[in-house]
């Protein structure tokens, strides 16, 4: 039955239910149990923000703390996935991509193609993404474009707890490698979430708000900024549709095309840096495929081409705001 659940608890519940359902699901990561081998409490942390808290008590050694060795354990998760397990590996922050990217993009992503279709690599790599935690340049990035670029990887970035649970369950059941991006600023956000298990198919965007004047495309935290902008614009009689991409690879461009064909205006919002971003990718596809539907030049609202700054005043300027989104919409309405 439906009850409200936070994003963080929805992630926990998805892992719990899948571990209960399927004995081949295991999970590993730094401090995901917390305190292994230490003199104090076993299961001390349940992840650095407590997302996996309580799962060790239920599933025991199927959850494994790892040494601080992302290359080794992400690689081990990938290797185990080709050998009959369905591992979930937690890469604490996607920013740590640099120390294990080879295992993700040269190994997991390529096995199936380069082995002529023989390999299946059902691994899920969970990682925190995004800014707003005053965590500065190496713990706040939105590196989704980098992983979305890689054929063979699937990329998920939910905006709410309902989607997080269903998409994580789908990620775990999926037979391809999935990078599951969790925006740390959404962990406390609550919506209705069924108690039962359910899987949301990949490549199926959600229309977060219906509208007729302009199409705002976003994912993750930016869906909330886009929706806030849309509500504000509605007071001025501008009716925006907000599309939550949910998965970036595969990406549901059909829903975007359908919407832009009716609104004629496109605004892409992305917390990533502007060059080669999801925003630029969506914009390019729309202009190539349905150029004649556009009534105005598409607008991109992204972070600037800088690292993520530390000082709160700067970080707040860095992350796209509802005001910036609204301004971009108005710009499309002016023509």
């Amino acid at each position: 039955m439906a009850r409200t659940l936070s994003f963080k608890d929805a992630v926990n519940e998805a892992i719990d239910q899948e571990m209960t359902r399927d004995p081949t699901v295991i999970m590993m990561g730094e401090d995901i149990v917390g305190g292994t081998g230490s003199p104090g409490e076993a299961d001390a942390w349940g992840g650095v923000l407590g997302v996996t808290k309580g799962l060790y008590a239920k599933h025991g050694d199927r959850l494994m703390d790892t040494p601080l060795s992302e290359s080794a354990y992400i690689g081990a998760a990938i290797g185990a996935a080709t050998c009959g397990l369905r591992p979930i590996a937690e890469l604490m922050f996607l920013d740590f991509l640099g120390v294990c990217f080879d295992q993700m993009y040269n190994q997991a992503a390529k096995f199936r193609y380069m082995f002529g279709g023989k390999a299946e690599t059902p691994v899920t790599i969970r990682a925190m993404v995004g800014g707003g935690f005053r965590a500065a340049a190496q713990h706040s990035q939105m590196l989704t474009p980098i992983i979305t670029h890689v054929p063979g990887l699937k990329v998920v970035c939910p905006s709410n707890a309902y989607d997080a649970k269903g998409l994580l369950i789908q990620s775990i059941r999926d037979n391809d490698p999935v990078i599951f991006c969790e925006h740390k600023n959404l962990y406390a956000h609550e919506v209705d979430v069924p108690e039962e298990s359910y899987a949301i198919p990949f490549g199926e965007a959600n229309i977060a708000r219906e509208g007729t004047d302009a199409t705002i495309v976003a994912y993750g935290l930016m869906v909330h900024r886009a929706t806030e902008a849309a509500e504000n614009l509605a007071k001025d009689g501008i009716d925006c549709e907000v599309i939550d991409l949910r998965t970036l690879s595969p990406i549901d461009m059909d829903t975007v095309y359908e919407s832009v064909e009716s609104t004629g205006r496109l605004i892409c919002v992305d917390e990533a840096n502007p060059r080669c971003s999801i925003a630029s990718d969506v914009t390019a596809s729309v202009t190539q495929e349905i150029f004649s539907s556009l009534k105005a030049a598409p607008q991109l609202v992204t972070a600037p081409h800088t690292p993520v700054p530390f000082s709160p005043v700067l970080e707040d300027l860095y992350i796209p705001s509802a005001e910036q989104v609204a301004d971009a919409v108005r710009k499309t309405m002016a023509t």
Binding site: A72, I78, G79, A80, T82
Partner: peptide, 10 residues
């Protein structure tokens, strides 16, 4: 090497 660890883990 990490992949072989994964095989051993499996």
């Amino acid at each position: 090497s990490p992949l072989a660890c994964g095989a051993g883990l499996a």
